[in-house]
């Protein structure tokens, strides 16, 4: 059993670099090779066991890298109250691993006494917005820190929605004091699935609220002659999403950027390639910014 080491660790803040979602398949590679990656992100729910190897690996990896906790189980958009026990477990992981960022989704997974474990779509009404804001505030108060909220990928819309997703999304963050985790792939997936205009969507986003960016692959299905894009995190980032990301960071500025790959998990080198692709785009924009400053 390892005791917590507050000292001798990589610093907590997540740098403005490319990072990767940490998968158990890659623990050994990360520990042995110490790849030149800015940071790692984990789903805290995968580390909520009482003990065992996952927590030990994470201790080890945390020595060398800043981490971000990306929660999938809080169910911020649920009509049901937040789960105290889950919040406590989240808090103890925050205390133990000192993550640079903590985030959750604009979504829900708890409709009855059971959990969907998948991110379900919200109806964008004032009622939902109030629930969302209240729950974000409760989490932030409990954790004593700001969290970031991620925009969802969605496949359907509710008739009862009173406002566009982007308005609801930004308003939830503004009212609760949360930041935004902009998933560029999700923007692309949702906009194409619903025929929304990507520029309209992005124009709502206030630069100063952006704390993190996500990138991932999605799959494409043909349904009755139409295209549905499914966010499955199971492939490389597609070229349209890379272009959108490049345009996004040129316009909105840089933020820590994560490559998420959660299904059909590749060998570690392939994940590293995706991370370095993101890093190259970050470096290019950073260089332009420096040049602009120098040349005035």
């Amino acid at each position: 059993m390892e005791t917590m080491q507050a000292s001798g660790r990589a610093p907590a803040p997540v740098p403005i670099r490319a990072g990767a979602g940490l998968k158990p398949q890659h623990y050994q590679s990360v520990i042995e090779d110490q790849p030149d990656i800015g940071w790692f992100e984990i789903h805290p729910e995968n580390y909520m066991g009482k003990g065992g190897p996952p927590l030990r690996y994470l201790e080890k990896i945390r020595q060398d890298y800043p981490i971000s906790l990306h929660s999938v189980g809080t169910s911020l958009g649920s009509h049901l109250p937040l789960d105290r026990e889950h919040l406590q477990q989240l808090k103890s992981l925050v205390d133990r691993f000192e993550p640079g960022l903590v985030s959750e989704h604009l979504s829900w997974s708890h409709g009855y006494e059971w959990y969907t474990h998948d991110l379900m779509p919200l109806v964008y009404t004032e009622e939902s917005l109030q629930v969302m804001v209240e729950h974000i505030e409760q989490v932030q108060e409990y954790l004593q820190r700001q969290i970031l909220i991620e925009n969802p990928s969605s496949y359907l819309q509710f008739k009862a929605s009173e406002m566009p997703e982007q308005v609801f999304y930004v308003e939830a963050a503004k009212r609760s004091g949360a930041g935004l985790l902009v998933d560029v792939n999700n923007v692309f997936v949702s906009c194409t699935n619903h025929g929304w205009n990507i520029d309209d969507y992005l124009s709502e986003i206030p630069i100063e609220l952006i704390g993190e960016i996500h990138l991932s692959g999605h799959s494409v299905q043909q349904v009755e002659g139409r295209t549905l894009r499914i966010d499955d995190h199971g492939s490389p980032v597609c070229s349209e999403v890379w272009s959108l990301y490049q345009a996004f960071i040129s316009q909105f500025g840089l933020a820590p950027t994560l490559i998420e790959w959660d299904s059909n998990i590749p060998e570690f080198p392939q994940l590293l390639e995706e991370v370095s692709s993101a890093q190259s785009l970050i470096d290019a924009v950073a260089e332009t910014e420096v040049r602009n400053v120098v040349t005035g």
């Binding site: 729910e45 995968n46 909520m48 066991g49 189980g73 789960d83 026990e85 889950h86 477990q89 006494e113 059971w114 959990y115 969907t116 474990h117």
Partner: peptide, 8 residues
């Protein structure tokens, strides 16, 4: 259906 917040 899952009764826990985690799938562990």
């Amino acid at each position: 259906p899952p009764r826990d917040r985690t799938l562990l």
